[in-house]
Design a binder for these strands. Structure first.
Lengths: 248, 248
DNA sequence: TAGTGGTCTAGACCACAAA
DNA sequence: TTGTGGTCTAGACCACTAA
């Protein structure tokens, strides 16, 4: 599982030291090198190991704490969070990842993929002129063979000109954007609400008309805060739930 | 609106300087002294004004940033967020705070307050024996006079024996638990889904039967990880949305 | 160019938990 | 008592924005 993660930080890199250290520790946790409940090296040890100041170590760990991945205990040390933190409310999680975390087998059916001109609303979300060509990809997501969600993605076509020729059913859209076009999604703004299923959505999801759906609207941004995707998700209310931990 | 908020920090206080400064700035924002879009004093100015180091100022502001209350812009300054950014997905936010953040006027109607024995499910959530007496408080929450949410709180009665004699319409339940019983909620586990309104909920919320509602189930814990409250929230799908930022 | 936030350092002392 | 994280300081230099 461990990839080519160098176990050091570089002062020549364009990304800050604390960010490098954050990513490094994050990798060690997600790779299983550090397991839930494990004690992390102490701050002093990390200072020595990576040759950075304690403030930098703490800044890196702050990120992991706010991700819920680690907890600090004064006098004891810093530990990998004991429970598998459900991160759907804090991190961008792929459908595949999400379903696997729930112990379900994900699959995908393509419903449509086409080029459309940006409406006023879409243009405003994606910060492009009205009429700008957008790739619209609509997919049905299934879990254990049963419909779970309908997903509509709107991408700025100019940034990923051959996106409509790709295969969306077997590979992650996000991974494809990163590998083929160098578009890395680094943050997103989302809004969650409950809506009643339209007839079309009800049919697609195999539920009754007006069944309650959990609707998520999401705008994803690159590291330079350029919006590249507008996503509309409709999850079956009877099957899907979002969980997370709150701070006091 | 400004209460007795001293505009200074004290080194004698038991709470840390950054926490005092955080609360102080938070109050100035929620009191409307600092309005959405306003420029905050620069970090250097705050250093001079409160006689603390820049790191302490930044630590205080870090909290406000992660609350979504302020945004930093390099080269420009730090601004109060354009009030859109609710952060109900990461922090426990009171209904009052929540509505005020949306520019709505909150009010509350008590629907019932009674003592009931814990069912099996409730006992498991609250980690008490089946049959343990629980205080059940059901309230209707309104925004600008219009129904917004129905809230059912189940409290372990043993921890707060006179809770049913209190006034829940004008004061915060959380604040009351803290002040009268020393019960401070420090974390919570919540789960969000979409449901159809039952006839009773539809009547209470002035919506049609089967209207989509955003349902939140939440177990709140003290700093010692003792569950003290099980909360069931039903928000009107047409009026309520949860927003937040995700990391990539 | 002046002022802002972004990053980083090398200390210091404290509170807390475990041995 | 030792080692942990929690708080705080007084600097430094950089990157960015606007005038």
């Amino acid at each position: 599982m461990r990839m080519d993660i160098a176990d050091r930080v570089s002062r020549q890199s364009k990304s800050p030291l604390y960010e490098q250290l954050y990513q490094l520790l994050r990798s060690r946790i997600s790779a299983g090198d550090l397991k839930p409940g494990d004690l992390l090296p102490s701050e002093t040890e990390l200072v020595e190991q990576y040759q950075v100041s304690r403030a930098t170590v703490r800044q890196a760990m702050d990120g992991l704490v706010s991700d819920g991945l680690i907890v600090r205990r004064q006098g004891q040390g810093t530990f990998v969070s004991p429970h598998n933190v459900d991160q759907g409310l804090v991190r961008i999680v792929s459908f595949t990842e999400d379903m696997q975390g729930r112990g379900l087998e994900p699959s995908t059916k393509l419903r449509s993929a086409e080029l459309i001109p940006a409406t006023e609303a879409l243009a405003s979300f994606l910060e492009v002129p009205i009429g700008e060509p957008l790739a619209r990809i609509e997919r049905l997501r299934l879990a254990d063979g049963e419909p779970m969600s309908v997903e509509m993605a709107y991408l700025v076509h100019r940034y990923c000109p051959k996106v409509l020729e790709e295969d969306y059913t077997s590979q992650s859209l996000r991974k494809m954007l990163e590998e083929k076009y160098g578009l890395r999604i680094s943050s997103a703004q989302q809004s969650i609400r409950a809506v009643s299923a339209t007839i079309e959505l009800a049919n697609a999801l195999s539920v009754q008309k007006s069944a309650a759906l959990l609707s998520i609207e999401r705008i994803s941004y690159t590291e330079f805060n350029v919006p590249i995707e507008y996503l509309l998700l409709y999850h079956r209310g009877d099957r899907y739930r979002l969980s997370g931990e709150l701070r006091g």
